[in-house]
Design a protein around this nucleic acid. Structure first.
Lengths: 209, 209
DNA sequence: GTATGTGAATAGATTCACAGCT
DNA sequence: AGCTGTGAATCTATTCACATAC
């Protein structure tokens, strides 16, 4: 479920403020979702609370972190060190979330060899070695769209388990690879779509009412 | 619907290759979704095809672009010019998608005044002016989590219609503002969750089978 | 024959509502 | 009394299947 990381963030904040017990309603409020939803999610994780009281914050943090990758950090390798790749490689949130950036590769010889955040960019044809050395299980595609499928194939061949694709292109991967798409321009276009629809609705209301 | 931008990308590629008619099956394949889904989406847009033949590519492109904001470009303002903000402000995909970056603001005086991609970073307390001058309708939050809610409030006050939040924090906005959350670390955590679950399932299968 | 358009069926997620525990 | 845990109801999205049109 996509809500677990949000719960985790809220819980960590609570723990830091010295709170040690939380009700489903409070947690739901913190995460911006329904309380029943929170209870369903937590009971699915076998993270039980005590009736009349609530859930124990530190216990929940443990259970959720466990579910989110078993506490083991999963190093990531970034393919494509353009503007976006550079930003991602320096993004603190990854390390904090248990995803240290362990490898950077690029196809452009002009970029290969540069140091970014203490790591040297290596040629894309050494991807398999980089993955093997660092034990990466997650790959990030930050290449131009045209190279995205190639990058996905190379990551698959290198033995990666999951791929996060930032390129605005549909890529196909084998069944056993977990693929997620994050398309920044698409996100904006969805907002634009809503804006436009709201405009149209207002116009329609004006015409009929 | 979140699929329209994906269709649009595929259609543009088709148009560039000289294809002028496409079936729902082909388009579905290109976008990685079900064919019936494509037909439902398109019929909702009143973008009709001809039975036995398919849809006309250029007509579809027109209809979808229209739905995605009426063809009008919506300038965006970015709040928070750290690593991520800088990368976003230089990200070509925004301009291509009809979302030119029209304003950059930051709270840090050390950052204010710098030029990024031809634009000068302005102080965050001039946000309302920046929005008014450039006619921005979309705001991007790329601040640290702690400042995200404040940024959202300021964008709301400045008259923004939609907000794209990159900060890993839940922010609350008035009903009439359209908010989308893009959390990079969360995306990775979801991948980690799937990896971990697959591991557990395999272990369980081993135990029972 | 081929491909759309759409009602019906299915699956999935969310929310309600309340019994049961502390 | 307060809060969890969960069956039932509801809403939404996806998929199927086929009548309809070219």
């Amino acid at each position: 479920m996509a809500r677990l990381p949000v719960y985790l963030r809220g819980l960590i904040e609570l723990a830091e403020s010295g709170v040690d017990t939380v009700s489903s309603v409070e947690l739901a409020d913190l995460a911006g979702v329904n309380a029943a939803n929170v209870r369903k999610d937590l009971s699915f994780l076998h993270a039980h609370g005590t009736r009349g009281v609530g859930y124990q914050v530190d216990h929940l943090i443990g259970e959720i972190s466990l579910a989110l990758g078993g506490g083991e950090p999963s190093p990531v390798v970034i393919v494509g060190i353009g503007n976006l790749g550079r930003a991602l490689s320096r993004y603190d949130g990854f390390v904090a979330g248990g995803f240290p950036v362990a490898g950077l590769v690029d196809a452009d010889p002009a970029v290969v060899g540069k140091r970014i955040g203490g790591r040297v960019v290596r040629p894309v044809d050494q991807l398999a070695e980089v993955v093997a050395e660092s034990g990466c299980t997650v790959g990030i595609i930050a290449t131009p769209s045209a190279s995205a499928q190639e990058a996905a194939d190379q990551l698959t061949a290198a033995g990666i388990l999951s791929i996060l694709n930032f390129a605005p292109a549909v890529v196909h991967v084998p069944e056993h690879i977990d693929l997620r798409q994050v398309d920044l321009a698409t996100e904006l276009q969805i907002l634009g779509y809503h804006q436009h629809r709201r405009l149209l609705e207002r116009a329609a209301a004006l015409a009929t009412g």
